[in-house]
């Protein structure tokens, strides 16, 4: 069952900048998050970013496919992720900052694993650190 939950804009205070490695992340909407529950079709433990490919069932018995960008394996490792944390077929729930252009992709904020553990992406809520 798909869960698609929009949260309201996140209040930001002070000068807020996204803290990332190799590119601006302004293509993602940090004012909104969606919660996607689905089935992992691939987990790519690669640089410059890890990716979770996810099939999310739709209301018509089909599935929508999302490409979800994560931090780098370097950052994820420091947050407790392992290279084999996800495998194809795993059921997960992912909090995502969606692409602003409406395409089916986004930036992972946190993932609830099949065993119930939750691992983050190193981003504070809203995807920004106050500087």
């Amino acid at each position: 069952m798909t869960t698609l939950r929009w949260l309201g804009p996140i209040a930001l205070c002070g000068l807020a900048l996204p803290v990332f490695a190799h590119h601006s992340f302004a293509m993602f909407d940090y004012d909104h998050r969606i919660t996607l529950t689905g089935t992992v079709t691939k987990f790519e433990w690669t640089n410059p970013h890890a990716y979770i490919e996810l099939d999310v069932a739709d209301a018509n018995g089909g599935a929508k496919h999302y490409s979800i960008e994560c931090a780098s394996p370097n950052v994820l490792t420091r947050l407790g992720w392992k290279f084999n944390e996800l495998k194809t077929g795993d059921k997960v729930t992912i909090l995502v900052n969606p692409l602003k252009n409406g395409k089916l992709g986004g930036m992972m904020e946190k993932t609830t694993l099949p065993d119930g553990r939750t691992l983050g992406d190193g981003n504070p809520p809203g995807g920004r650190f106050d500087q």
């Binding site: 190799h22 590119h23 293509m27 690669t46 640089n47 410059p48 970013h49 990716y51 496919h65 370097n74």
Partner: peptide, 26 residues
């Protein structure tokens, strides 16, 4: 230190120099 090989860069620049994310078709 961990290794870092930039093997799977899905970000690319379009003709206007804008950063885009390559999505996996499914």
């Amino acid at each position: 230190l961990l290794e870092y090989v930039c093997e799977n860069n899905r970000e690319y620049l379009d003709d206007n120099g804008v950063t885009r994310l390559k999505l996996q078709d499914h």
